[in-house]
Structure formats: C-alpha cells, structure tokens
Write a protein that binds this DNA or RNA. Structure first.
Length: 882
RNA sequence: GGGCGGAUAGCUCAGUGGUCAGAGCGCCUGCCUUACAAGCAGGAGGUCAUAGGUUCAAUUCCUAUUCCGCCCACCA
C-alpha cells in the first residue's frame, strides 16, 4: 500500500465517515460504563463554533473511555426550542407571503412540524461531519411522544405536590413574540433614553415626578415618596391628578423610593413596571390598570371617561412609542412637562428577537423554587457535582441562594401544552397526564390550558428523560448510565439549563444528573467580538472542515481553548493541527517505505540499538502516564500538547532519525508498539486519520482496541529496563549535547560556507559504543571527526574552540581567517554565561539564602555555577591564546 | 450596585515562588539532507500592565491602580 506524500483529509474523511455511519453503536448495558447526555441543539440550528468545540470535547471523552474498554454511551437528541423555532418558521412563512394571522393556529402548528421534519435533524448530520461516536438514529427529540410523557408527568407531579401556582403577575413580555419570558430570557443592555419631568396637579400647585416612560402615565394609580422625605411628608394621603387622563391618585409612602433620584417622587404604574407592581402588592388601596394589549398598543377602554374623552380617543391603538411622542406633545401643550434630560439606563430585550421587553400584567404559571433548590444546593456545596473550572461552584450556589420563582408559561403554540384542565361552568381545575374531557364535578366539557411550557422546562428533564423516564425501560438505563459522568456546556446556559437539571433530577429521582460539569471556553471572532451570524463575525465550522478537515478542526479547537474563558479564534492553531496530522501521516509513510525496502543498512551496534529502543519505551511510558492523568482531569489542552510534543520532538525528531541507521528488523517491534500508543491516544482527538492509519498498519478497527493492551507492551519493556538497570538517559545526554553544539556548527557553516565542520572529541562516555557515538554525533551536527583524543590538538590550540557537553569535550576547528568573526560569536555566548554566573554568585553569597532556601535548590545552583565557570574558563584560556 | 476572569514575544496563547520565561504563527539565515517545504537546522525578538507589600528569592503570593472582558441585579 502506498500513502500519499501529504495527508489528503478529504479522501480519508470521506471514506471513513461512510464506515462510521455504518457502525452499529448501541448501549451494551455493561458493568463498566461511561455516559454523556449531549446538550440538545435546537432544531432551528446549524453547527456553530460552540457546538464544534463542545462536540469535540464530548467525543473526546466518549472515545477515550471507549478505548479504556468501557461501554461508552453518548445520548443525543434535539430540542424543540419553543420561541426560537416558532420565530424561525414564522419568518420563513413570511418569505412565502404567508402571515401568521392568515392561517389558523392548527395550520401554523402543522407548518412548524413540517419544518421540523424537514430541517430538524440537519444539525445532527453536521455533528457527524465532526466524527462523533454516537448513534444518531436513536436521537431523542424533546417533543417526541415518549418525551412528552416525561414532561406531563413532571408537571403534574409538581402541580400535585403544590409547587406549581397560577397567578396574575407582571412578567417580561415580548410584544413581537407575543409571549411571556423568564427573567433569564431577557437581555439587559444599556440604552440611551430620556428622563421626563412631569407635573401632576395638586389641590395647590404641583408635584413633579420623573419617568423614562411617559406613555405609562395613563396607567398610573398612585404617586409614591419615601416616608423619610421631608419635602413631601405633608402630601402623604393627599391626591394628585394624573395628567391627560385627569384621574386622581393617592400619594403614598414607600421605603423603596429613592429620595436622591429625580425629584424623589415616583409615579406608580403597577401593570407596567416590576417595582411598581411590588408597591401595588404591598398597598391594597391602590389600583392596577393595564392599558396595553399584547402587542403593546394602547387600549383606552378602562381609562376613558367624560373628562378625558376628547383627548384620549386619539390615543387608541397607538403603539408604545407613538404614544410616547404624543403624550410628550400633549404634556408640552398643557405646560405640564417640566424638563427633559438625557439618560442612559439598562433596558431589557427579548433574547430571541431583540424587541424591547414590556413588563406586562397577565395570568401566568409559576414554579415555586425555594424549596426545590435546597438539595441541589447541597450536592453542589459538597462537591457531589464538581464544576470545571471550579469557580462555577460558587456562581451556581449564589444563584440557588437568590432563587426567584420560575415563570414557566408561554403564550406560543410550539411547545408542551400545560396539562391543566378547566371547567368553565363550575370552576373545576386539575392537572392530569391523561387528557381529561368531562368535568368530574359537573359533567360538562373541560378545556385544556392554552399556554405551553417554557422550553427550558422540558430541557431540565433531559438527562433522565433522554433515557426514557418515566417509562419502565428507564430503570435499566438508570442502573447502567445514570447519573451521567459528565456534562459539558457553554457558560451562557449554566442557570438556564444546568442548574435546573440538577433541580429536576434531585426532585424526581433524588439523584444527581451528572457527576462533573465542564464549562468550556467561549470562542470569539478573531477581532475579539462575539461570533454572530447577524454581525457577520461568525466563522462556519463546516467551512473549516472543508478547508482543513474535521480532525484538524477538532484538534485545532482543543489547542486554542486551554482553560481560559474567552479565546479569539485562531486559524494558525487549526493549521498547526493540520500540519501535525500530516506529520504523523508521513512518519507512518516512512515506516511503510522502510518495510518495503528492508535493505539492511545497520550502522550501529546491537547495544546502541537496544538502548535507543528502550529509550523510546521509557519516553512512551512517561507519556502514557501523563496523558491518562490529564484526561482524567479534563486537561484537554495539555493532553493534546503533550502528545504533540512527544510525536514531533521525540518520536519524529530523534527516534525516526535514529532508525535511519538501523535495519528494519531492529526497530519494527518498537515502532509498532509506539504507533499503537500514539494512534490510540490520538484517536479521541483526531478520529478520522487515526482510524484510517490504524487500519492500514494493523488491519484492525481502532475503536475495538483497548489502550490497556498497548500499555502492557510498554510496561513489559519498562520491567526490562528496571531489572537490568539500563541507563536510557545516555541517549538524552547525547541529544542534549548535539543541541548544545549545533548553534556553533551552524555559525561556522554560515561563516565558511562549508558543508561540514571538523571537530575533535575528548573523553567521551564509553557507555555507548564509541564508534556509534561519533557516528551519530557527526550525522546530527554536520561535523566530521578528525581524531579522537588527539594529542596534537594542543599544538594548534589557537584554531580550536572547546565546548563541554554531557558526553565529553568537543573541540571545534576554525580556520584562521574566520577566527576573529567566530570570536565575536563566542564572546557573546561567554558574556551570556557570565551574566548567569553573576546572578548565581550573588545568590550564593547571600547567607540568608543559604540558610533558608531548600537544600536541593542551593545544591542545584552550586552545580550550575560550576558548570558555567568551567565552560567560561576553558573557553577564555583558549580565546586568550588566539 | 454586587461578583468573577484576564493583562507574558509582532499576533494567538501556554507556564512557573528559585536552575538563561515557552509553543504555534510571523520575521531573519542556511537547507528540496529521499517520511514530511504542511518539512529540516539555526537565529532575532520579552523590565511577564503599573505601584507598593510579603519573602533569602516574586512574572508567579498579597494589596491598590489602570485597561479589557464576562456574569448577576435592574431606581423610576
């Protein structure tokens, strides 16, 4: 078989992806398992960089544990993503000229289903392009019939146990999506606006309030001042007249009012402001008036009367911004607008459509959270669930401690309809998993609640619902795969999703849903801005796969995210990964070539060959131990870089170069053992190329191999080394010495334009065969050895420069005409040495240091100093003689 | 307002209480040395944000400051 000169990822990945997709990947229900539940992507979505990173991390863990011999199961699926999907389909229909109001709710709903059937699983196909080890065919969907059972059961149980209540509250309302939102679905952004100072008539004079939303004046039902505010204390209990509507409202006192802000007098609009609603709840005597419809347009029915009829009628139907303009105009005309100031404040926007949120007084369903959060807080506190990075532990605990009730009802169509049934006639209400049609009390027809549940309600059940809770078969999954080992996700859904999964799992199963939570980095655009389609700053992972291959993308993502929280996307790291895969490819290509041309050209002794092979085993052994530890601690970056450095800087740079002087049979076993380790450990990062190459070399499916077997082969050799007391460090010494000499040789070659430089060796260590040592040394440093222990050296000392290395002294010959230039170069080196010597001497002269520093540290310094001094001395003497 | 993270080479990022502070990319020099030019050898380039403190020793620990970013809460 021939491998191409460079790695053609397209050819390999196209072939391998076919084989991956034909594999049967199913839970084995074995003893030793590893499991992950994927954060289900939205059915609206397409693969973005966050998915790509998250998939890579999860697939790494799944494949790594698979190779450890575990029954490694990745539960996958998609989320119906309520508002998001409905919005997308709505826009889509609009493109076809269909407005939502043109069709019935039932028709609209079926359109969404059509859309879901057509596009809903595209993202999972895209996940497959990344090479994930999961059974896409068994993917769950948060609205499939079995999942729906879970949602119903969960809601009904919470309802029956009294955690669900319905109430009229001011909630976040999106006038475009026409639904309520939870606090977490509102994005606050500083927005420049104006502060309007408005005069309200008193019996005698005016009281001036200030507001950012003058249009809500029409819904004012009180004015509030701080009880300690002396300016207004005499007014408390009096009435003021709300401008335009000409309604009298009480002036009340409330601690919440900030005396410093504005005039210290606050207009109270309970139906359209969260704080005002709180004041309303505390003060029974004031009214609440809703003046908007669901689209935030004015409805004046409730406020119109004969005094204001003339002016108010022209407000009917205006949206909130038109109303604002108009009321400012009217106030100005009536001389009731005291002044206007510029002001910047945080305004809430819908996280889906970016419309300004309207606080809106409406009937909503809530889940009472305080009690539900108690156990989740405990399991996080006592590290039953661990967070990586650990700072999130505190963040989550804080959130639990300040928990607010969860508004779970949404006024949209796409979602799980709340399973509560009402009787219009007798007022009967109950929640039920089964559809109820007839009122058990009066026998009339029942109606089901129209609202649907927050999409995050069903997501919160994901880890166990994905395993078919509450069906009977759940128990089998629960025994083997629950809790899942790890959850990896983006930090933006820590509260929205992660913390709520813990709540639901503790409540329904009294079990944690996952043991570890990895919060991965956020990948920003190269500019440092958020990657976003609408801003045009997004980078499409699929395009990167086209350009660099999935393996390069996976590995490139891992080596650019480390543990930091925000990372600017770097193409260089993807290229680095691509080059690395090519490097491995070529190293294997080299061995394939050697295999087919096994011409014996062994130039080294048996002992040296043995030493080099064992040296590699020792390095492999250290590598493997390190990698296992890093993988266990989710240190993916370090794992990746350790492998990278081993393969490139140890295996390729040195071992492969050594094998060039060996016979194929001298290194065949060692190389096979090494490649087995390398490919197996690399497989979780770069599944395509490693699958392909493993197949080529070993004619086996890498995914059915076990890391342990490969480790055993290493372990055996390590035993040998220990038993025989073999000093593999000799090879390290050789390498180090070569690296030490190279700069000098390079300098001479540059000066003289010679291909080779003459050197003399003295007092080489004789643990390695002498001829081998000189041969290797010459080859790697581009030198020619002249004589060994040549006594004639002294006679022409002026032409030589001496360097002490771990394997002996090396005298480099320099032709006379280049000596002075070379001297400059050497002088520089010496100066650097002297700087270090000064530093160390200063330290060693410090008695405090000698007294207090670790013995080992002091000794190391002393040794280092001797080395430097010796080198300087020898070289100086020689330079002096020139 | 409360909380958290970051500032290290031209760029993107690792790392460390002590032994010339590292990688990739970029740059300079020399190489198509038969696995790999997606490569090989060598090199230049850093007061480790600023100011104090702790310590025999600080880029690393502590405090303050400046700048950047994130999260939570939203006083009209």
């Amino acid at each position: 078989m021939d491998l191409n000169k460079s790695y053609d990822f397209k050819e390999v990945e196209n072939q391998v992806i076919k084989e991956f997709s034909q594999m049967e990947i199913n839970p084995q229900f074995a003893q030793n398992t590893f499991s992950i539940a994927v954060p289900p992507p939205n059915v609206t979505g397409s693969l973005h960089m966050g998915h790509a990173l998250n998939c890579t991390i999860q697939d790494f863990l799944i494949r790594y544990n698979l190779l450890l011999g575990k029954d490694s199961v990745w539960f996958v699926g998609t989320d119906h993503a309520g508002i998001a999907t409905q919005t997308v389909v709505e826009k889509n229909l609009l493109k076809q000229g269909i407005r939502r109001s043109d069709i019935t709710p039932e028709e609209f709903l079926s359109k969404i289903w059509e859309w879901k059937e057509q596009y809903g699983s595209i993202i999972l196909d895209q996940f497959q392009r990344l090479g994930i080890y999961a059974n896409i065919k068994s993917a769950r969907f948060t609205m499939d019939p079995e999942y729906t059972k879970a949602v119903k059961k969960a809601f009904v149980e919470l309802y029956k146990k009294g955690y669900v209540y319905k109430g009229k509250r001011v909630v976040n309302w999106c006038p475009r999506c026409l639904t309520s939102l939870s606090d977490l679905e509102v994005v606050h952004k500083p927005t420049p606006t104006k502060l309007y100072y408005v005069k309200y008539k008193l019996n005698d004079g005016y009281i001036i309030i200030c507001t950012t939303r003058p249009e809500t004046i029409l819904a004012d039902t009180a004015i509030a001042v701080n009880p300690n505010d002396k300016r207004y204390s005499s007014l408390i209990g009096n009435y003021a007249e709300v401008p335009i509507v000409k309604r009298l409202v009480p002036i009340i006192s409330d601690q919440e009012v900030d005396m410093e802000f504005g005039t210290g007098a606050l207009k109270v609009t309970p139906a359209h402001d969260f704080n005002d609603f709180k004041i309303y709840q505390k003060n029974q005597q004031i009214d609440i008036i809703n003046i908007f419809n669901t689209k935030a347009q004015l409805v004046i029915d409730k406020i119109i009367n004969e005094h204001n009829k003339e002016i108010l009628e022209s407000y009917q139907g205006l949206d909130r911004y038109q109303a604002r303009e108009k009321i400012i105009k009217d106030l100005t005309e009536q001389n009731l607008l005291h002044k206007i100031e510029d002001y910047t404040t945080n305004i809430g926007y819908c996280y889906r459509c970016d419309t300004v949120i309207e606080p809106y007084y409406s009937d909503q369903w809530f889940i009472s959270m305080k009690e539900l959060v108690r156990k989740p807080k405990e399991v996080v506190e006592n590290d039953q669930i661990r967070f990586f990075p650990s700072t999130y532990k505190k963040v989550v605990i804080d959130w639990y401690e300040n928990i607010q009730d969860w508004c779970v009802s949404r006024q949209i169509l796409w979602g799980h309809r709340i399973p509560v049934y009402y009787c219009k006639d007798c007022g009967y209400e109950d929640a039920s998993e089964e559809e109820l049609r007839v009122c058990p009390k009066c026998g009339k027809n029942l109606e089901q609640e129209k609202d649907v549940l927050d999409t995050w309600f069903s997501s919160a059940l994901w880890p166990f619902a994905v395993m078919y809770w509450p069906l009977d078969k759940f128990q089998k999954y629960q025994q083997n795969y629950y809790p899942t080992n790890v959850l990896t996700t983006a930090r933006e859904i820590v509260f929205l999703w992660v913390s709520r999964m813990i709540v639901m799992s503790m409540f329904f199963l009294n079990q944690i849903p996952f043991k570890d939570v990895i919060i991965h980095a956020v990948i920003l655009a190269p500019s440092g801005k958020r990657m976003s389609k609408s801003l045009g700053t997004g980078i499409d992972p699929l395009e990167l796969i086209e350009k660099y291959g999935a393996d390069a993308l996976r590995m490139g993502l891992i080596i650019q995210t480390a543990e930091s929280q925000d990372v600017k996307f770097s193409y260089e790291k993807i290229e680095m990964a691509r080059n690395f895969i090519n490097k491995i490819w070529n190293s294997i290509r080299y061995f394939q070539i050697r295999k087919t041309n096994p011409n014996a050209k062994s130039k080294l002794s048996f002992q040296t060959i043995e030493l080099i092979n064992l040296w590699l085993y020792l390095n492999l052994y250290e590598l493997v131990n390190k990698l296992d530890q890093l993988a266990n601690n989710y240190k993916f970056f370090d794992y990746c870089m350790s492998l990278y450095q081993f393969v490139w800087n140890v295996f390729c740079d040195w071992y492969i170069e050594f094998t060039k002087f060996m016979d194929y049979s001298d290194f065949e076993k060692t190389v096979q053992d090494a490649l087995r380790i390398i490919l197996l450990y690399l497989h979780p990062l770069t599944p395509f190329s490693t699958y392909f190459l493993y197949q080529k070399i070993f004619q086996k499916n890498i995914m059915q191999e076990k890391i342990q077997n490969a480790k055993d082969a290493i372990q055996e050799q390590i035993q040998n080394i220990e038993n025989e007391g073999i000093k593999c460090s000799k090879i390290d010494d050789l390498i180090e010495s070569i690296k030490q000499i190279r700069p000098f040789i390079n300098e001479i070659i540059n000066l003289t334009a010679k291909q080779n430089v003459t050197v003399h060796y003295q007092s080489f260590d004789d643990q390695i065969d002498h001829r081998d040592l000189i041969f290797l040394f010459n080859t790697f440093t581009k030198t020619v050895h002249n004589a060994v222990n040549d006594h004639k050296i002294d006679e022409q000392l002026s032409n030589y420069f001496v360097i002490n290395t771990k394997i002996g002294s090396i005298k480099i010959f320099v032709e006379k005409e280049y000596i002075s230039k070379f001297r400059e170069f050497v002088d520089q080196k010496i100066r650097k040495l002297e700087e270090n010597v000064n530093k160390i001497q200063k330290l060693l002269n410090n008695s405090e240091f000698i007294l207090k520093a670790d013995r080992q540290v002091v000794d190391n310094y002393r040794e280092q100093l001797q080395n430097y001094l010796q080198m300087i001395e020898i070289n100086k003497t020689i330079l002096d003689q020139i």
